[in-house]
Amino acid sequence: MNTNNENSNEVRKELEDIAPSLSKIDRANPFEVPDNYFDNLPGVVSDRINGHSTPHSSTVRALVIRWTAVAASIILIAVLTFVLTNSPEGNINLDLAQLDLDEIEEVLMDQGIYAVEEEELIDMLLDSDEESFLEEINDLDEIIDYLIDNNIDLTTIVEELES
């Protein structure tokens, strides 16, 4: 008897002991895929990669920069709010001129650019350490739209920074 069969029997026996009714149900996969799906997928992936021949295509990069700018603006507003309301000396452990836009962009890409949450923005803010993005501030309507679309509560960011 080969190892696969041994393991299969072990799994079946284990299930009979734990859940007798469940063990009687046919374990066949009830899910299907469209005809030739797995034959076509490598080509589909290849086409998408050719459209992304560099890690960040120009289109994706432009989109990321746009969202990064908005995110950066939110961070900036949070920091300014914090500084103005809580720190007369402005003596916080952050340097606005030291934030790294590329790093934020990479984090956004990794996390999924539409899923930015308060905690992520705070982390990005605290972890960043290079160039200034003061010039990235966009108009207020865009920032407000972004906050609403992503259900981001600015108060949460400020409170986190205070703690």
Partner: peptide, 23 residues
């Protein structure tokens, strides 16, 4: 990379499919 996709596409697909259910 194409060979990698061919090699692992089914295992990854079925893992994902069983999590999100919809094809």
């Amino acid at each position: 990379f194409n060979l990698l996709v061919i090699k692992y596409q089914k295992r990854l697909y079925w893992h994902i499919r069983k999590m999100v259910l919809n094809h």
